[in-house]
Design a protein around this nucleic acid. Structure first.
Length: 111
DNA sequence: ACTTTGACTATAA
DNA sequence: GTTATAGCCAAAG
C-alpha cells in the first residue's frame, strides 16, 4: 500500500491524537484537504480495526461530540470506557466539554 | 463499469 | 427536540 493512501493519512492523524483529547471526522477530513469527505474518514475507521497498529478510533467522534461510532467496536460501551479512562467525561454518549478537549489536527498536528 | 453504502455535515421544515 | 434531504467521495459488491 502507498503511504499516500487516503486511509493511511487518516490513520496517521488519528494515531497522533493525544490522550484525553478528541477530534472530529470533519476536522480530519479538513486536515487532509477535503473537508467534505468526512464520510471517508468514517469509512476508513471501518477498516481501522484490521490495521496494525490499531487506530484509537475512540478518540474520533462526530462534530456533535457524540459517540456515533461506538456500535462498530467490539462492544458498544468500549468506546466510552476508553475515553473515560483517558480523562474524557462522557455522558449519554456525548462528550462533556467537548470543545475544551477538541484536538484540531490542522492546528495541533505538526508535520 | 455501475450501483450501493457509509463511524458525516449542513440546511430545511 | 425531531425527521428529511442533499452534498460529498472513495471503497465494496
Amino acid at each position: 500500500m502507498k503511504e499516500t493512501d487516503f486511509f493511511q493519512q487518516v490513520y496517521q492523524v488519528v494515531r497522533e491524537i493525544p490522550s484525553g483529547r478528541v477530534t472530529t471526522y470533519g476536522a480530519i477530513a479538513s486536515c487532509l484537504g477535503s473537508k467534505q469527505s468526512s464520510r471517508m474518514v468514517g469509512w476508513a475507521m471501518n477498516k481501522a480495526h484490521q490495521q496494525n497498529p490499531s487506530v484509537p478510533a475512540h478518540r474520533v467522534v462526530n462534530r456533535n461530540g457524540q459517540l456515533t461510532g461506538k456500535h462498530h467496536f467490539e462492544t458498544p460501551f468500549i468506546m466510552q470506557q476508553l475515553l473515560e479512562l483517558e480523562g474524557v467525561v462522557v455522558k449519554n454518549d456525548c462528550i462533556q466539554k467537548f470543545e475544551s478537549i477538541f484536538w484540531d489536527p490542522a492546528k495541533e498536528l505538526i508535520l
